[in-house]
């Protein structure tokens, strides 16, 4: 079965949905019109650019452009995390970038080379798409977890310092905050597993079915993707929170995160 192509006219008529969103924003003074317009432009620009790059990488069929794409995605992910976590005094981004690149490279390599069994394991059609899903979902999970971590360290500073003064080390003084941050990062993925196939049909499966694949094969892929994402977002939330927590305390286990009203 061939996929029905979307021509330029069809694609641009999709903008009617953005018009509805902008009308809603105007009607209720949400002031989101500018963000909606920029978001739409970025969606077109980024995805077309990605399409051209992927076509090039697929055509090359060499290992290094695939790895370069992967590292670029990880760098961009860390940039997004930095923006969302809203903590600029503590330096935690480089170790998280190193972790994401190495850990997710291994995870993606394992999924494509061992579970799917592609040869070579870095085959761009699989490696970049699976890697993109892993990095994308983990970025969301890590951002949520870190935002929660920094926010709790700021608002519960007195409690953390009270424990430090009573002989707690930094791990003990922040144990409860760490648990909450890790849970916050993992819950969206767990909720997605609960609702998948009933509340929504995931994007990858939809894409495969629209692309003409047998639904039973699309299901197997989707299960594999859900398991892979649960593992990688858990790993990302846990390790990132631990890295950021260590960087939030100094040598004397003193809390480096400042409340917003520091003298």
């Amino acid at each position: 079965m061939n996929t029905q192509d979307i021509d330029a006219l069809g694609l641009s008529s999709g903008l009617v949905f953005i018009a509805i969103a902008i009308a809603g924003s105007l009607l209720y003074s949400l002031k989101l019109e500018k963000d909606l317009l920029i978001g739409t432009l970025r969606t077109f620009a980024q995805l077309f650019l990605m399409g051209y790059i992927l076509s090039g990488v697929f055509a090359f069929d060499l290992e290094w452009p695939v790895m370069a794409c992967f590292v670029f995605m990880a760098v961009f992910a860390v940039w997004l995390i930095r923006g969302r976590a809203k903590e600029h005094e503590v330096h935690y981004l480089m170790p998280i970038l190193a972790f994401m690149t190495v850990a997710y490279l291994i995870v993606t390599g394992f999924v494509s080379g061992v579970i799917v069994g592609v040869k070579p394991w870095w085959s761009p059609r699989y490696f970049i798409t699976l890697g993109g899903m892993i990095i994308g979902n983990s970025t969301t999970a890590i951002s949520i977890a870190l935002e929660r971590l920094f926010s709790d360290l700021r608002t519960r500073r007195a409690e953390v310092e009270m424990m430090l003064t009573l002989g707690a080390d930094y791990r003990e003084a922040s144990a409860d905050i760490i648990r909450n941050a890790m849970r916050a990062g993992m819950i969206p993925t767990i909720n997605a597993m609960m609702g998948v196939g009933i509340v929504f049909i995931p994007g990858m499966m939809t894409g495969q079915i629209l692309g003409g694949a047998d639904p039973s094969m699309a299901i197997r892929y989707q299960i594999m993707v859900m398991l892979m994402l649960t593992g990688s977002t858990t790993l990302g939330s846990l390790v990132s929170v631990l890295i950021a927590r260590r960087r939030s305390f100094g040598k004397a286990h003193e809390l480096l995160i400042r409340p917003e009203t520091t003298p």
Binding site: L164, L166, G167
Partner: peptide
């Protein structure tokens, strides 16, 4: 640090 801090609470 934890040993020092609990000595001068």
């Amino acid at each position: 640090p934890p040993v020092f801090r609990k000595s001068i609470c």
